[in-house]
């Protein structure tokens, strides 16, 4: 952790204006901004942790909890909303039993909302593990989740099979 943080911090001079980029670097490397990382950034830039926290919480991009194994972002921009995006988010919340911004207890799934990814012509859209799924419907939500769930199960089986072989 501390090492990873040092790797992010190292290229940046001690200048306040790099704060945003450093935080973006931390998030990219570690997936979220932990308390430890936040303090590390503050002491590197010689500013207070409260100031770092203030900047980090201002921007929607920064997360303070990790990503799930599968990360889902539902678009609730104008076009997606007009095409029924709320029903899509509702479906994910219901199926995963978490709210937007949350993560399942086993860290398998995390869910977020976004205000438009510029793919409005394919509304309503969701982004799952960086892949855009176009023209979603509540029914497709179940299909997609089932697809990923199966894959997970398959991965698990393969893993187990793999372990079996190596023994």
């Amino acid at each position: 952790m501390a090492e990873e943080l040092q790797e992010v911090l190292a290229p940046y001079p001690v200048e306040r204006r790099y704060l945003l980029r450093i935080l973006q670097g931390v998030q990219q490397k570690m997936g979220y901004i932990s308390e430890e990382a936040l303090e590390g950034v503050a002491s590197h830039l010689k500013i207070s942790p409260a100031e770092v926290y203030g900047v980090a919480t201002f921007y929607n991009q920064f997360r303070f909890i990790p990503y799930g194994k599968h990360h889902i972002v539902a678009c609730l921009g104008t076009a997606c909303h007009a095409m029924g995006g709320q029903l899509i988010l509702d479906a994910f919340e219901r199926e995963l039993d978490i709210k937007a911004g949350g993560i399942t207890p086993d860290h398998g799934w995390s869910l977020d909302r976004v205000g438009c990814i510029g793919c409005c012509t394919k509304a309503p859209v969701v982004v799952i593990n960086d892949v855009i799924h176009a023209k979603m419907s509540p029914f497709k939500v179940e299909e997609v989740l089932a697809g990923l769930g199966l894959e997970m199960r398959k991965e698990k089986e393969e893993e187990e099979a793999g372990e079996g072989e190596s023994q």
Partner: peptide
């Protein structure tokens, strides 16, 4: 391009 529902600049 923060306006949701806009994608010209993209």
């Amino acid at each position: 391009e923060g306006d949701p529902g806009a994608f010209m600049d993209r």
